[in-house]
């Protein structure tokens, strides 16, 4: 049984069909890259998988829970790093992580230990007492990464994991994500960064116009005769005639 299972998922906002019949499965131990151009339906899919949005049709299962009918149970079991970061908050990172810990029913000692460990790993020890709203975007992203992993969930949903991070921290986060997935967890990463996906993911799915148009396993690199992931991406997305995506000819010229 997959950690994440999606069958015939559909979601519209008025006349706009954001997700138009999505099907895929993610197993434990996978670091799954969800690639697609702007407006392809990636964020809506994540929001549906985490019970933030009610689907119009289809079946979704995350760790044997149904996010549509039991969203709190789903969110209790998973970690979420949202696309838009965090709202301006006047808590310090230490207080914010205490808040997340209390909401997730974690012991104070465990939260304190995790806070110190993550602050050292991502380099925000000196910012633990600074108001969150006064942190740089990169520092805020580090705190948000911490809250997504603080309860060591079996499945994590991440929208653009490396946004605003400096190159050193990017490397640390990439290595951490690879090892975390290898520890029998599933990591679902939505990103525009094809190089990063190619570097860290075990498998990728390419989305265009609300549908999964192709998947590729990256465990053993590309097979002979297969093009790069970028070529595959442009080829499949172009085939779907996505309006907002430049064509190969445009890029060539």
């Amino acid at each position: 049984m997959g950690a994440i299972r999606v069958d015939g998922l559909r979601k519209s906002y008025g006349a706009v069909e954001a997700v138009a019949g999505m099907n895929f499965t993610v197993e434990r131990g996978e670091l799954y890259g969800f690639l697609g151009p702007n407006g392809a339906g990636k964020t809506t899919t994540i929001r549906t998988l985490t019970g933030q949005v009610q689907p119009d049709a289809g079946t979704v299962r995350v760790l044997e829970t149904d996010p549509a009918t039991e969203p709190l149970e789903t969110r209790r079991k998973v970690g979420i790093l949202p696309e838009q970061g965090s709202p301006p908050s006047f808590l310090t990172p230490r207080e914010y992580l205490e808040f997340v810990g209390e909401v997730r029913d974690l012991s104070a000692d465990r939260v304190a230990d995790q806070t110190v460990a993550w602050a050292e790993r991502l380099g925000f020890e000196s910012k633990l007492e600074t108001l969150h709203t006064d942190l740089s975007r990169g520092q805020q992203q580090k705190v948000m990464i911490t809250q997504a992993f603080i309860h060591e969930p079996d499945v994590v949903f991440i929208d653009e994991p490396l946004a605003n991070l400096d190159p050193l921290v990017q490397e640390q986060v990439k290595r951490f994500l690879i090892s975390y997935a290898a520890g029998d967890n599933a990591v679902f990463v939505s990103t525009h960064n094809i190089d990063v996906a190619e570097e860290i993911c075990t498998r990728v799915g390419i989305v265009a116009d609300g549908q999964l148009v192709t998947e590729r396993s990256l465990d053993n690199g590309a097979d002979e005769g297969e093009g790069s992931l970028l070529e595959l991406f442009l080829e499949r997305v172009e085939a779907e005639e996505t309006r907002d995506t430049p064509t190969l000819e445009h890029l060539g010229s």
């Binding site: 908050s89 808590l91 230490r94 207080e95 205490e98 808040f99 108001l131």
Partner: peptide, 29 residues
């Protein structure tokens, strides 16, 4: 940049409500 000493845990622990962490966040904000 402003800093603050940790008041969240103490305040949240002192509030006798089921949703104490959410209330505490609102009050500190």
């Amino acid at each position: 940049s402003r800093t603050a000493t940790d008041r969240f845990a103490r305040l949240s622990g002192a509030l006798p409500f089921e949703n104490a962490p959410l209330v505490t966040k609102s009050l500190l904000d």
